[in-house]
């Protein structure tokens, strides 16, 4: 298939002439020098402060290190997936409330969506960490991080789901109603299955946000990747290298998820274009 996604990068320039080619070559060389210099400066900075010493990096050659990271990563993934499930359920409820024809219900749902979208995750986390125990409710650390992260992502998820429902052609609903289906049957059997497929890429992007927010798990001392990194640092006295490696792990996971989301969105577009 030839309708790959062309971006502005592909058509912004005409084929360069000899003069422009020369400019581009000069620019490439100059910028390469700049980049090389930048890398050199960073490496020198590490070297001069002794951060390239083997003792800081040799821990990453041990299997136990990675097993410990793996355990933390498992904790991160558990929280993320649980939070994603809760988010999805809450988002569904909010979305169904928002598209309800009853003005009162729809207003209430809109208020909840705005609240969830306009309040930082950390405030929710502190709420579950500091305020909820004051009511005598003792939650395990797992839920102290999962619930706030889920609540703070629910509003955006509701809006994502709503955009999916709106993207289903109107005729589908009309056809189903003229066949004699009831309102909720139309939604469950006709609208939602199509809407869900449309919003899968959006939901994956939402998972990235959830995963990022779970890094605050150390606030409630839940053993996720970040928390395990802190334990590791106090054991090995290798702060910089451990935090950098953990950051890279997070970046790679999120990068992969984003790529997957884009791939699914593009595949959908291709399939629709036929």
């Amino acid at each position: 298939m030839n309708n790959k996604n062309i971006t502005i990068r592909d058509y912004l320039y005409e084929a360069p002439g000899p003069k422009t080619k020369r400019y581009i070559t000069i620019g490439t060389v100059l910028s390469l020098i700049c980049v090389a210099w930048l890398i050199y400066v960073i490496i020198r900075l590490f070297y001069e402060n002794g951060q390239l010493d083997a003792k800081y990096w040799s821990i990453f050659t041990r299997a136990t290190t990675w097993r410990f990271f793996g355990k933390g990563l498992l904790g991160t993934l558990e929280v993320s997936l649980a939070a994603m499930l809760v988010t999805f359920s809450l988002g569904m409820i909010m979305m169904i409330g928002r598209i309800n024809r009853n003005k009162v219900i729809s207003t209430i749902a809109t208020v909840f969506i705005e609240l969830s979208r306009g309040i930082p995750t950390l405030l929710f986390i502190y709420f579950f960490f500091l305020a909820v125990p004051q009511f005598g409710l003792k939650l395990p650390a797992f839920w102290k991080i999962t619930l706030p992260v889920a609540i703070s992502a629910a509003g955006v998820t509701a809006e994502t789901l709503r955009s999916g429902v709106n993207a289903v052609p109107k005729g589908q609903r009309e056809a189903a109603i003229s066949l004699g289906m009831r309102d909720h049957t139309v939604f469950l059997k006709i609208i939602f299955p199509q809407a869900f497929r449309i919003v899968i890429p959006g939901l994956i992007s939402e998972l990235v946000i959830v995963l990022k927010d779970t890094t605050f798990a150390y606030v409630v001392s839940y053993a996720d990747l970040m928390q395990n990194a802190r334990v590791m640092i106090s054991n090995y006295d290798a702060l910089l290298s451990v935090y950098l490696v953990v950051a890279v792990i997070y970046i790679l996971i999120n990068y992969g998820l984003n790529k997957l989301s884009v791939y699914l969105a593009n595949r959908r577009k291709r399939l629709q274009a036929g």
């Binding site: 995963l211 990022k212 605050f216 970040m226 910089l240 935090y243 950051a247 997070y250 970046i251």
Partner: peptide, 17 residues
């Protein structure tokens, strides 16, 4: 793709090294 907490921790605690 970097979580905010991770970036802040690197800036605050790792850069002094």
């Amino acid at each position: 793709n970097i979580p905010g907490a991770s970036l802040l921790i690197v800036l605050v605690y790792a850069l002094p090294y």
